[in-house]
């Protein structure tokens, strides 16, 4: 026990580890809450698209010499705006929607790859952009994450009730004079900011580990919004802290630990829910 405590204090003696834990905590709380609404509203693929677009943003920002964080925020928010505005402009919702999504996704990743290869000597950094890294987080980055995260959470607190209403039953909400359109617009922007934050810890390709899995676990365990909204960020925190600790002790990338913890938790929750359901069925 003292041994464990010792290793923990040893880990916290490194400033980079403290920064990583602070950043991870902020990101986990934001993604846990926003992710809960995202899963409820069935917008996971929008979240995925935003994350993919973040990659050329981050690579381009690195190429230009500004921090990757700016690239993430600019591109994710811009993409959120585009997605929010698109359905009204388009209108021809046929099966080719998936072909468009696939093409845009591949093009975004290709552009990111182009920027990375234009920036010579950055080929190891590409793994960090795609699969996450926790060693290079500066104090300034933590502050930026905190400010953006606080803005996201304040907005979410303000629109939380009507957003929940309009997510559960958009038609009734619209009939009750809830501005459903405006809410979904604002939510996509919040989602863009949350994705940009999560990308900086888990990397572009693995944001689902923090955005989807904790929320999905929470919604498997409970259908009550108040409990779920509490549970989802807590699970995200456990996943992040666990991932950071494991990545500190073993030489494998944090993305692997975070996704494995999240996926393991999801499978466990589904199995447990299935067992409970079967038992209650046999009790009847």
């Amino acid at each position: 026990m003292t041994n464990l405590l010792q290793t923990l204090t040893q880990m916290l003696a490194y400033p980079f580890m403290v920064n990583a834990l602070e950043a991870g905590t902020i990101v986990a709380i934001v993604s846990g809450l926003i992710g809960w609404f995202m899963v409820l509203r069935r917008q996971s693929f929008a979240g995925h698209a935003l994350a993919v677009v973040g990659f050329p943003g981050a690579a381009g920002a690195t190429l230009l010499g500004v921090g990757a964080a700016y690239g993430y925020f600019t591109f994710c928010l811009a993409a959120a705006l585009v997605i929010a505005l698109l359905p009204r402009a388009g209108g021809s919702g046929r099966t080719d929607e998936s072909a468009v999504t696939g093409t845009v996704q591949a093009l975004a990743l290709a552009c990111g790859f182009l920027f990375v290869s234009l920036y010579h000597g950055f080929l190891n950094g590409i793994d960090a952009l795609l699969f996450g890294s926790f060693v290079g987080i500066s104090q300034g980055q933590v502050t930026a994450l905190l400010v953006v995260g606080a803005c996201v959470l304040v907005t979410l607190a303000l629109i939380g009730r009507p957003l929940l209403f309009s997510s559960v039953d958009p038609e009734v909400a619209a009939a009750g004079n809830v501005p459903v359109r405006a809410l979904s617009f604002v939510f996509l922007l919040l989602l863009g900011a949350a994705v940009a934050e999560a990308s900086q810890i888990t990397g572009t390709l693995l944001v689902f580990a923090l955005l989807v899995a904790p929320a999905a676990i929470a919604q498997t365990v409970t259908s009550r919004p108040s409990v779920g909204l509490l549970l989802s960020p807590i699970i995200a925190l456990i996943v992040t802290w666990g991932g950071l600790t494991l990545a500190y002790f073993w030489p494998y990338p944090i993305g692997f630990f975070v996704t494995s913890l999240a996926f393991g938790g999801y499978v466990a929750a589904r199995v447990a829910a299935g067992l409970v359901r079967r038992r209650s069925k046999s009790a009847w």
Partner: peptide, 25 residues
């Protein structure tokens, strides 16, 4: 649904990164 797919795909990629690190190290 997309939640299941998303979870599985993220884990598959995470696993890939693990194997890759194993190979490089």
């Amino acid at each position: 649904d997309d939640v299941v797919i998303g979870n599985v795909l993220a884990w598959v990629l995470g696993l890939g990164v693990f194997f890759l690190t194993l190979y490089i190290t």
